[in-house]
Simulated assay, not measured.
Amino acid sequence: MNDLSGAAGYLLEAGMLKRARRSGWWIAGVRDPESIAEHSWRAAMTGMVIASLEGADPSRTAMLLVLHDTPETRIGDIPKIGRDYLTATDAASVVADQTAACPDRVKATVHDAIAEFEAGETPEAICAKDADKLECLIQAVEYRHQGVTTVQPWIDSSLAALQTETARSLARELLEAEPLAWEQTREAK
Rank of each mutant, 00 (worst) to 15 (best):
M1R: 12
M1S: 12
D3A: 03
L12M: 11
A20K: 11
A20M: 13
G24Y: 10
W25D: 05
W26R: 15
I27K: 07
P33A: 00
E38M: 04
E38N: 01
A44G: 00
M48Q: 13
A51W: 05
E54R: 04
D57N: 11
P58C: 02
S59W: 13
S59H: 13
R60P: 01
L64H: 06
L64Q: 03
V66S: 09
L67I: 05
L67Q: 06
D69P: 01
T70Q: 08
T70V: 12
E72T: 13
T73I: 07
P79V: 05
K80M: 10
L86A: 07
T89R: 14
D90K: 09
A91R: 09
S93Y: 02
A100D: 06
A101G: 09
V106Y: 04
V106N: 03
A108F: 05
T109K: 11
V110C: 08
H111E: 14
A115C: 05
F117P: 07
A125C: 04
K129T: 11
A131K: 07
D132E: 10
K133F: 14
C136W: 10
C136M: 15
L137M: 07
A140E: 07
A140D: 08
V141P: 09
Q146V: 08
T149M: 13
L162P: 01
Q163V: 11
E165D: 15
T166Q: 08
A167C: 04
R168A: 08
R168I: 08
S169C: 09
L174Y: 15
A177H: 10
E178H: 14
P179E: 05
W182D: 09
A188V: 15
K189M: 10
